[in-house]
Design a protein around this nucleic acid. Sequence first.
DNA 1: AAACTATATCGTTATATTGCAATATACAAA
DNA 2: TTTGTATATTGCAATATAACGATATAGTTT
Lengths: 110, 110
Amino acid sequence: MKISKKSSYTDSQQEMALLFKALGHPARMAIMEFLLKVNACICGDIVDELPLAQPTVSQHLKELKNAGLIKGNIEGNTICYCIDENRIEMLHQYFTIFSSNLIKKDNNCC
Amino acid sequence: MKISKKSSYTDSQQEMALLFKALGHPARMAIMEFLLKVNACICGDIVDELPLAQPTVSQHLKELKNAGLIKGNIEGNTICYCIDENRIEMLHQYFTIFSSNLIKKDNNCC
DNA sequence: AAACTATATCGTTATATTGCAATATACAAA
DNA sequence: TTTGTATATTGCAATATAACGATATAGTTT
């Protein structure tokens, strides 16, 4: 091994990676955008909307929920899902900061 | 099969998913943030920075490059990598719009 | 040209993800 | 309480990803 090598990644890097990973599938992007479009919440309509079987949708919803990107609320028979605004704001902030750090600098290659 | 079922995802959903997927790994987040930190460009220093072997880093760089998140410039013996600002701006924009669409609405559940 | 340096590619192994049929759970309605 | 509806879980097969040693490529230096 060469010289140093950091042993691990920062908490932030790991947390952000989990968020991005959750968004890193077209079906989950479609779910997020569908939830955005239909405003409030929805449950099994997502199954009708996507070209996927119910268990597969359920699994994708679980992943989005684990990442904190959506919330689910049990209402009798159904479960009402909606986007967690805080998480979206977090992502928005991340790129605002990233972007402004980029602009300040000047690449001397590429 | 129930009623309709859209056959596929939009181009945008697929493209964004590819971007997020590329960012969905702590090593690649670390590379992006390292490139941001060191301002200009870097090549094999990333190998020293991360707890990964050279082929693994090379592979992660390739994925980031395929997603268009970074650019690589051959300079004699070395390759100088840097962030593609346009792609970052695209991501920033995405969440700006997403976020503003969210705020306008009022969830009636969750 | 030979040796060295930086990076990419190949081949392989281990692990994770995706998708779904079948089944379970839990509530609702009859 | 039986039937139906909505959702989750399980188990499995197919595929993708992550990591890395070995090796290839390409430029640099001597």
